[in-house]
């Protein structure tokens, strides 16, 4: 699986996962990795970046299994960015797919 594809779409996948429900770091990594196989090390800094850019906000929630966990929640700004990104991706992938199918027709 081409790593460039994965890189490009990782942000979108992460945002969608967080938008579905508030989630903590490790749980998010597990869910994201079900959709696209990436190195964990690329996801955590991404979370940090999105938080700094105010697309996510974080809060601590008490946990029965140990110390309080840091949870991520998407902000209205983040939702807006996510929808734009989703739209961009759908447009882009549709164009590429059409192009490829057009190419296949000529074979």
């Amino acid at each position: 699986m081409n790593s460039q594809f994965k890189k490009g779409v990782l942000e979108l996948v992460v945002m969608i996962v967080v938008s579905q429900h508030d989630i903590y770091g490790y749980e998010l990594v597990k869910q994201v990795c079900e959709v696209v196989q990436v190195n964990e090390g690329t996801i955590y800094p991404l979370l940090k970046r999105m938080t700094n850019e105010k697309y996510f906000e974080t809060y601590l929630r008490e946990s029965t299994e140990g110390p309080p966990r840091k949870y991520y929640r998407i902000t209205p700004l983040g939702l807006e960015a996510m929808n734009q990104l989703k739209y961009d991706w759908l447009q882009f992938s549709r164009q590429i797919n059409q192009f490829i199918e057009g190419d296949c027709d000529h074979d």
Partner: peptide, 17 residues
């Protein structure tokens, strides 16, 4: 090990700032 290379991880984190 799952986090990958520490130096690179730190670099990526700093990019967020």
């Amino acid at each position: 090990h799952d986090f990958g290379n520490v130096d690179e991880l730190a670099r990526e984190i700093l990019k967020a700032y």
